[in-house]
C-alpha cells in the first residue's frame, strides 16, 4: 500500500481510537484544524469532540490534564505541536509523569503517550526547528522513541499505548510527507531494539529520526567509493539498545554518530561514551560525531542548510575515519 509517514501516524491513531475506548487525542489544533501537520485530519469528524479534543494554548495545562487522565485509567495521546513548545510542559513531564510511579511506591502509573514534532529543514526558524530529544532522553521514568520509517510511524504508537509508563514519541517534521510502501497488515512493532537499516563492514553510522534518510543516501554514495557503511537506526533514544550498537561497532571497528541535536551535552556524546566504555579495544579510529552547528537554527535557507548535517558532510566525516587512499 502506497502511503505517507503522516498517513501512517494517522492510521495508528485511528486504529487506537477504534480498538480502545480509553484512548483519546488532545492538543492544540488537533480537532477542527486537523493538526498543525495535518496528522489528525478527519479524526474529529470520525470520532467526535469527546475523543478528539482541541486544547487551549497552554502546554502545561493540557499535558497535565493528560497525566491526570492517564492516572484515572484513560489512555490519552497528547500532541504537542513541536518540541520547542514542549518546554512549557517540562515540569509536568519531568516532575510528574516521569516520577509518579516511583514516588507512589508503584501505586500509580502514567500510561500517557506524548507525540511531538521535532527538527529543522523547513525554514521555520529558531522558534520551531530545534531538536531537543536529548533533554527527554536524559530523564529516567520516560521512554523516548524516534520513528524514522513508515513501519515505525505506524507501529510505535500501538506498542507505546500498551506500556504502563509515559512515552514520548518524536516525529521529525520533514518526514511527514515521506512516501513509500507499507504492508496492508502493518501494526505494532517492538520498541527495544535498534535496527540495522543497511549492512556494512567498514564503519557504523549511528543515527535516528530525520537524519536516517540523509545517512542512507550518504552510505549509497560511500558505496560508490567502495566504502561499506553500516547504518544503524537507534529507534529508541531511551533506553539505548547498547548491545546492538556495540555488536555493530565490534564488526566495523569505526563509528560515526549523526545527530541533528547540538553536539555539546547531546545524544551523540552519550552514544560515543557508551562505545568508549564497551567497545574501546575494538575501535580502530576515534568515534566521530556529526551534529548541528552550535547556534539557534537560522531562518535563511542557505544558512539553515549549512547548519545541519548534510549528505556531503556525512560522507566527508565517514571518509575521515578510514585510511587515506
Amino acid at each position: 500500500m502506497k502511503t505517507t509517514y503522516r498517513e501512517a501516524v494517522r492510521a495508528a491513531l485511528r486504529d487506537a481510537l477504534e480498538t480502545d475506548p480509553r484512548v483519546f487525542l488532545m492538543g492544540e489544533d488537533v480537532g477542527r484544524y486537523g493538526g498543525a501537520y495535518a496528522v489528525s485530519h478527519g479524526l474529529l469528524e470520525e470520532f467526535g469532540p469527546e475523543r478528539v479534543r482541541d486544547a487551549p494554548l497552554s502546554e502545561s495545562t493540557f499535558v497535565g490534564a493528560g497525566i491526570g487522565a492517564a492516572l484515572g485509567g484513560m489512555r490519552p495521546v497528547v500532541e504537542v505541536m513541536t518540541v520547542n513548545f514542549s518546554l512549557l510542559a517540562l515540569d509536568q513531564i519531568v516532575n510528574n509523569a516521569a516520577t509518579l510511579h516511583h514516588m507512589s511506591g508503584g501505586q500509580l502509573s502514567v500510561p500517557l503517550v506524548i507525540r511531538m514534532a521535532t527538527g529543522a529543514g523547513r525554514q521555520l526558524a529558531a522558534q520551531h526547528s530545534h531538536s531537543l530529544e536529548c533533554w527527554y532522553a536524559h530523564i529516567p521514568g520516560i521512554r523516548v522513541l524516534a520513528p524514522a520509517t513508515l513501519e515505525d510511524a505506524r507501529g510505535m504508537l500501538p506498542s507505546a499505548l500498551r506500556l504502563p509508563d509515559p512515552v514520548v514519541i518524536f516525529e521529525h517534521a520533514s518526514l511527514y510527507g515521506m512516501e513509500g510502501d507499507l504492508a496492508d497488515d502493518a501494526g505494532a512493532v517492538e520498541l527495544d531494539r535498534a535496527a540495522v537499516r543497511r549492512e556494512g563492514r567498514d564503519l557504523t553510522c549511528i543515527t535516528y529520526g530525520g537524519s536516517l534518510g540523509k545517512v542512507l543516501a550518504a552510505a549509497a554514495e560511500l558505496a560508490r567509493e567502495d566504502i561499506s557503511a553500516e547504518v544503524l537506526d537507534l529507534r529508541s533514544l531511551r533506553p539505548l539498545d547498547v548491545a546492538t550498537l556495540v555488536a555493530s561497532v565490534r564488526r566495523t571497528r569505526r563509528a560515526l554518530v549523526v545527530d541533528e541535536g547540538w553536539k555539546t551535552g547531546g545524544l551523540a556524546g552519550e552514544v560515543s561514551a557508551v562505545l568508549m566504555e564497551q567497545a574501546f579495544y575494538d575501535l580502530d579510529a576515534p568515534v566521530a560525531r556529526l551534529c548541528t552547528a552550535e547556534l539557534p537554527i537560522p531562518y535563511a535557507k542557505q544558512l539553515e542548510d549549512a547548519a545541519l548535517p548534510r549528505v556531503e558532510t556525512i560522507v566527508a566525516a565517514a571518509r575521515a575515519l578510514l585510511p587515506a587512499r
Binding site: R253, F280, Y281, D282, L283, D284
Partner: peptide
C-alpha cells in the same frame, strides 16, 4: 597514535 584495536 595507535588505535586501541591496533594496539591490541
Amino acid at each position: 597514535r595507535v588505535s586501541p584495536l591496533a594496539r591490541r
